[in-house]
Nucleic acid binder design. Structure first.
Length: 434
RNA sequence: GGAGAGAUGGCUGAGUGGUCGAAAGCGGCGGUUUGCUAAACCGUUGUACAGUGUAAAGCUGUACCGAGGGUUCGAAUCCCUCUCUCUCCGCCA
């Protein structure tokens, strides 16, 4: 949600900012509704004050033993007028709220212009895509070749867009997650959190997935439904809900590993092969809660923390500044990290790091007490993948493939892989041991 | 799953229809006293919205005592529904 005062006073300016995203905002319609709200609110509060004064008078008269009959008669007709005024005000206020919850965040001034991802701007590159002296295979060929990646079984169990991994690959994913969490907690100042994977609607409204993007979410059909988290951003950021932090409490950095569940409605036909786009994937998430003045800097920090992971894994990547038309609903500014996938001969998104400014904070009433004035102010929230484990696994498999179809284990992951330096087909000997 | 008890301001906790945004204590902030610290004493101390104000301050009003609805001229207080917490029993990773 953006500042209602700003919507009121500078609605044309806001509309121009939205237009950069390709989002149309009816500024005149909003202003008209806002005018109605104002007059209804003044009228309602006036009637309430009147009623309160009368009630107080009646109380006093009764205490003094005066006959309250005439006073009651005088007040009786007020009820209907007050009810009507309150109902009218409620209608207008919820109409305004519906509009406000559907408006995206304001773009930061330095967000590049553009309609879609083709207009995104490369900021920097790290590493050189390796050249292979044998025919390059993609993660599907490699994983299935090793007998460790099984889409057929997953389809039997759950249908399309799921995967079963086993042996070294299953462990590789766990190793990646452990490595990422250890790095962020040990070196980047994050606090590790374990959080619910099922959340209720208000949490998703807080981060911006609802009310507009419910179709992207899985929902239980229990009486009061739960939603499966599409990202740990939802529970982690909602830790700040309805909180007024002391100035010294910020900044806070949280990290969590969770599975992520996405319905991928509307992405039929995209990335149907392999495990690039799944209904369920693992991710390590990074969330910052900061003072408003620090969020611009914090986005650079957060992005660099995700980059460290790719650097330590030796995976070539580039950083891309998303353009106005490609940026997410809640974000003012976003950097994507795109990792090199030899199997596709292109860079693919592996992390998305966003400054959500006060957009989510306003929705979830996350505030901090100003050290000088003592007044509560909205905090700024940021989130980013640090990084998506499923896609990191694909990147490791494809970038570390060897001529015989085995996968070399990146140095930093070996401690998490029981010292193994290579992933091979599960050996018969091991199976017999079991 | 069964039975019971609760939910009040930063915290503890009083308040069972009117003068209650809410006693008291603790904590916080400001001050007095004081070699320093501590203690003592005095004052102050919620959030949001609206109106007024050039703005800050201030002033005025409205709402908020877990959430939503109801009764009433008037609800923290009475009624209904829901959520959460605690205790006991059962079951269970």
């Amino acid at each position: 949600m953006i500042d209602p005062k700003l919507l009121r006073q500078a609605s044309d300016e806001v509309a121009r900012n939205f237009a950069r995203r390709g989002f149309t905002f009816d500024a005149d319609g909003y202003r008209a509704l806002e005018e109605r709200r104002k007059s209804l609110q003044i009228e309602t509060e006036r009637l309430q004050a009147e009623r309160n004064a009368s009630a107080k008078g009646i109380g006093k008269a009764k205490a003094e033993g005066v006959d309250i009959g005439p006073l009651l008669a005088a007040v009786r007709s007020m009820g209907d007028r007050l009810d009507a005024a309150e109902a009218g005000l409620n209608d207008v206020q919820s109409a305004l709220e519906d509009i406000e919850l559907g408006l995206p965040n304001l773009l930061a001034p330095d967000v590049p212009e553009g309609k879609d991802d083709t207009a995104n701007v490369e900021v920097r590159r790290w590493g050189e895509p390796a050249s292979f002296e044998f025919p390059v295979r993609d993660h599907i060929e490699l994983g299935e070749g090793l007998g460790l990646l099984d889409f057929d079984s997953a389809a039997k169990i759950s249908g399309a867009r799921f995967v079963v991994m086993s042996g070294g690959l299953a462990r590789l994913q766990r190793a990646l997650i452990q490595f990422m969490l250890d790095t962020h907690t040990g070196e980047h100042g994050y606090e590790e959190a374990y959080v619910p994977y099922l959340v209720h609607a208000p949490a998703l409204i807080g981060t911006g997935q609802l009310p507009k993007f419910g179709a992207d979410l899985f929902r239980t059909d229990s009486e009061s439904p739960f939603y499966l988290v599409p990202t740990a951003e939802v529970p982690l950021t909602n830790l700040a809900r309805d909180t007024i932090f002391d100035a010294a409490d910020l900044p806070r950095r949280y990290t969590a590993h969770t599975p992520c569940f996405r319905s991928e409605a509307g992405s039929y036909g995209q990335d149907t092969r392999g495990m690039i786009r799944q209904h369920q994937f693992e991710k390590v998430e990074l969330v910052h809660l900061v003072h408003a003045a620090e969020s611009i800097r914090a986005l650079e920090d957060l992005t660099s923390h995700a980059e460290v992971i790719l650097q330590r894994l030796g995976l070539p990547y580039r950083v891309v500044a998303l353009c106005a038309g490609d940026i997410g609903f809640s974000a003012a500014k976003t950097y994507d990290l795109e990792v090199w996938l030899p199997g596709q001969r292109r860079y693919r998104e592996i992390s998305s790091c966003s400054n959500c400014t006060d957009f989510q904070a306003r929705r979830m009433k996350a505030r901090v007490r100003n050290a000088d004035t003592g007044k509560p102010e909205l905090i700024h929230t940021l989130n980013g993948s640090g990084v998506a484990a499923g896609r990191a696994l694909i990147a490791v498999v494809e970038n570390y493939q060897q001529a015989d179809g085995s996968i070399q284990v990146p140095e930093v992951l070996r401690p998490y892989m029981g010292g193994d330096s290579v992933i091979t087909r599960r050996s018969v000997a091991v199976q017999e041991q079991l």
